[in-house]
């Protein structure tokens, strides 16, 4: 088993790591802000892509919701579903599109049960993806809060 898979199957650890990174970046925010978000984004992008690629097979959507989806990247679903599984999941729990891959939502749900802090967030409705953020650093987007901006009509539903 790859290191990434091993880590993903220990979502509690990843949840802690997320909490730490979140705290770390928030603390660093004044510095990053002074240095410039765009400049930091350019510097961080490759490292972020590389590290998240190894663990999560990250697709750099730029608006990371891993902690709300059982530390399983929803963009690795061939249909990019961010709100739960489609109706095509095979009886053995594998993907409709890639039969040898386990449905990422089956995994997401299982993993979310082992996440005491963010696990329950899996039931939240996720807004449509902002395709303009593709390829940018999700951590920087978290600091500037553009990852939380939703279309004006979406509002609170």
């Amino acid at each position: 088993m790859s290191i990434g898979k091993w880590l993903q199957n220990h979502p509690r650890l990843l949840e802690r790591a997320y909490q730490f990174s979140h705290w770390f970046f928030k603390r660093l925010n004044p510095l990053i802000s002074r240095f410039g978000y765009q400049r930091t984004d350019r510097l961080m992008r490759t490292g972020e892509e590389w590290s998240k690629k190894i663990i999560f097979d990250c697709r750099m959507c730029g608006q990371c919701i891993l902690h709300s989806t059982g530390m399983t990247c929803p963009m690795t679903c061939p249909k990019n579903l961010r709100n739960g599984p489609c109706g095509g999941v095979r009886a053995n729990g594998c993907c409709e599109v890639i039969p040898e891959m386990k449905c990422i939502w089956v995994e997401a749900y299982e993993r979310s049960l082992d996440m005491p802090v963010f696990g329950p967030d899996i039931i939240h409705i996720q807004p449509p993806v902002n395709r303009q953020l593709e390829g940018s650093s999700a951590w920087i987007n978290m600091l500037t809060e553009v990852d939380k901006s939703v279309p004006r009509g979406w509002g609170n539903g």
Partner: peptide, 12 residues
Amino acid sequence: VFDFDSIQLLRT
């Protein structure tokens, strides 16, 4: 395409 998922479509 899958720009939306079914839940985002419903809400829209």
